[in-house]
Design a binder for these strands. Sequence first.
DNA 1: ACAAAAGTGTTCACACTACACCCATGG
DNA 2: CCATGGGTGTAGTGTGAACACTTTTGT
Lengths: 230, 230
Amino acid sequence: MLPAYYSNYSRFLIAVDCIILGFRNKELHLLLTRRPVEPMKNEWSLMGGFMDEQESLNEAAEKILFGFTRQKNIYMEQVGAYGDLHRDTGDRVVSVAFFGLVKMEQFDTSLAKEYDATWVNINELPHMVFDHNKMVGDALRLLRYKVSTEPVIFNFFREKFTLPVLQELYEAIFQMPLDKRNFRKKLTTMDLLDKLEAKDKESSKRGAYYYTFNPDKYALFLKNGKRFSL
Amino acid sequence: MLPAYYSNYSRFLIAVDCIILGFRNKELHLLLTRRPVEPMKNEWSLMGGFMDEQESLNEAAEKILFGFTRQKNIYMEQVGAYGDLHRDTGDRVVSVAFFGLVKMEQFDTSLAKEYDATWVNINELPHMVFDHNKMVGDALRLLRYKVSTEPVIFNFFREKFTLPVLQELYEAIFQMPLDKRNFRKKLTTMDLLDKLEAKDKESSKRGAYYYTFNPDKYALFLKNGKRFSL
DNA sequence: ACAAAAGTGTTCACACTACACCCATGG
DNA sequence: CCATGGGTGTAGTGTGAACACTTTTGT
């Protein structure tokens, strides 16, 4: 028994496109696929799909991310809606873009074959279908903004992490080298991390201390009127 | 002759909701209306409408803005898409929010009666239908970000403006007083404005010089690796 | 012992903040 | 002549940037 008011208007296909960024070895990569259908069949494309009646936009995005990477509870953020008239040359489609950041290690290579998916270095992006290049540009800008104004980067590391790797991730996101001492000074003066006794001995002989993000400290930090910035 | 691929998926109503901010007398206001239909009939609501087959998202937003304020070529920005399952209690609707900033002086009061529209002070916002309060919060955050990192505020003044009024607009947007000398120093050191000979004699006896934003200076500014910040 | 990555302080330049008085004009 | 808003400079403080050496340990 829906109000009649709604029934006079057009309805649209809504796609969700996911900008899945992967990090490994100091490098950022983007997960791309070959578009499986016409038009533009076999051209490079983001991971996408159509929204379903029974799911919210966020749920649709999580569904797609999980389908391709088998990762859940990943930090994702909406980039925006793309609604130009002829952006999809196949039919009128409004697309909502999301981005997420995952560990490339956990990307199953058997999935890669199934979906014809490939990690492409963020500096060597090819031409993609429709307005997908614009979406990626918008997503990177948003990621840089978010990461430098909110402590969202710690969501990437499920728990503990080392400062050298944290710095490498920042450097990959901003595509610029950072000074080690300045980087660490900022973090220590904000005082949001807990230093663990354990060390990561895999990437160096000496070993780097593990840290964890402390949400309680962050709550206090905010209550004191301070604002995260990196 | 559309590809069959598209035909298997659900289609949705897409609404566009406009956060129309108005500035006058050092105060920011939001244009609100009484929702004309069930459900939630007569509750406070943003200016909204459904997207049409023949228009892009941006065009739909401009259409709504123009309909209510008779102003065109206004700086507008997309806030984002809102797609929770039951956000609109009448039917499944995905809504895309936009905001724009206009001069309240140019809002025709006859339109106000026709649409039951009212300017409400930004500090005294009522409860609105659905997720409209969230949209407004998101829009204000975005406005503050945009205005402090890009020279978009000059779009508000169609041409010339005085520094006192510019400062008042900033203060209204950020809801905080700014130091007059520091504010002007920042502007003069960036060197993006041209000082005109004419003065605005309406708001004071002495009169304030008019300025204009100079896009060429801004292009140079960017080429020198500088970044706008206020 | 040496290679390879982890960790640690200080200085300098610049940007941001706070702050008070004179100016021009209309009434 | 006075009330009202417009316009101007400086000193102090804090933040961001540049920079090099020692430590640890596995091989």
